[in-house]
């Protein structure tokens, strides 16, 4: 997967989980590992999404990845 495509895919993964289950960065990594995507690529995609502000880290007794509130 190209990094841009992976980023969109990852954004949608987080979006679809919102309100159901808070995802940890580890959950995202595991999801893509099961799809056979290299860990470095997953880390890079997540880093870029967070650097761009499209995703953020939140904290509720543990760190999660979420879409920032409007």
């Amino acid at each position: 997967m190209e990094i841009a495509e992976l980023k969109e895919n990852m954004y949608k993964l987080v979006e679809s989980a919102m309100g159901k289950k808070k995802l940890k960065a580890g959950d995202i990594k595991k999801h893509y590992r099961n799809e056979g995507i290299a860990e470095d690529q997953v880390k890079e995609a997540l880093k870029e999404l967070v650097d761009e502000g499209r995703l953020i880290y939140t904290y509720f007794g543990g760190s999660y990845v979420e879409i920032p509130p409007k």
């Binding site: 960065a25 967070v50 953020i56 904290y59 509720f60 509130p69």
Partner: peptide
Amino acid sequence: HGGIVGVRGYGGGVIG
């Protein structure tokens, strides 16, 4: 406590 505060790109270092 809690929440959604931090600096862009980081997931730590700031406690809400």
